[in-house]
Amino acid sequence: MLDVLIKPNKFFEARMKEAESLKVPLLIVLISGMISGIVAFLMARIALEMLSETLPPEALGLASTIGGISAFVGAVVVSLVIWVVFAAVFFGISWLLKGEGTFKRTLEFVGYGYIPMIIGGIISAVLIYNFISTAQIPQVTDPAQIAEIVTQWIMKSPMLQLSSIIGTLFMLWSANIWVFGLRHARNLSTKNALITVGIPVALYVLYSVWRLGVLG
C-alpha cells in the first residue's frame, strides 16, 4: 500500500493486472470522510455553542448531539459524493482526450488517491481541534452571523489558514497519485493524464487560495 504514495506508477501498473475492486478504495474514502466528519462534528458543536444565548439549555444539549451527528454523517456522505464526482469529472475529461477504460476502474484508482488526504485530514483535524479547544466562542443571536464568523476565522486565524494550506498540499499529493492512476485506468499519455487531473485540481486549488483571502 505504501507504493501508492511513493511509487504510484508501479502500484497502478500492478493493480491493472488484477480485477476491479472498490472495497479498499471505498474504505479509504470512508476513513477520509470520517476524519472530515470529526471536523464537521466539532464545527457543528461550536456553531451551536455560539447560539447558546438564544437556545434553552435542554434544547441546546439535544441540538448539539443531533447537530454533531448530522454533521458527521453529512461529511461522510459528501466525501463519498465528491469521490464519485471527482471520478466522473476525470472520466469525462479523459473521454475528451480519447481515454479508454471503465468508470469503475477510474473510481477505484481515484479512491486510492485519497490516502494522502487521510494524512492531511488527520493533521488538519488536530490543528482545528487545538484551535477550537483553546479559543473563546463568541455568542450570537442571529444564525446568519455564524457563517460570517467562520469566514473570519478562516480569513484571520493562522491555525485555520495553516490547516487549509496543509489540506491543499495533501490534495496536490493526491493529484499526483491520480495522474498515475488515470494514466493506467484510462490508458492515457502522461501529458493527457496531467491535463485530466490538472484542470479540476487547479480549479479547486485556486478556489482554496481565493477563500484564504490571498486573491480575495
Binding site: 511509487k7 504510484p8 508501479k10 493533521i123 495553516l162 498540499l169 496536490l172 499526483n176 498515475f180
Partner: peptide, 23 residues
C-alpha cells in the same frame, strides 16, 4: 507554523519527485 508548513511541503514535493523518478 511556517516551519511546519515548509517541512510538509518539502516532504510532499520530495515524495512526488520520487514518484516521477521511479515511474
Amino acid at each position: 507554523m511556517i516551519v511546519v508548513l515548509v517541512v510538509i511541503a518539502l516532504l510532499i514535493i520530495g515524495v512526488v519527485a520520487y514518484s516521477w523518478k521511479k515511474r
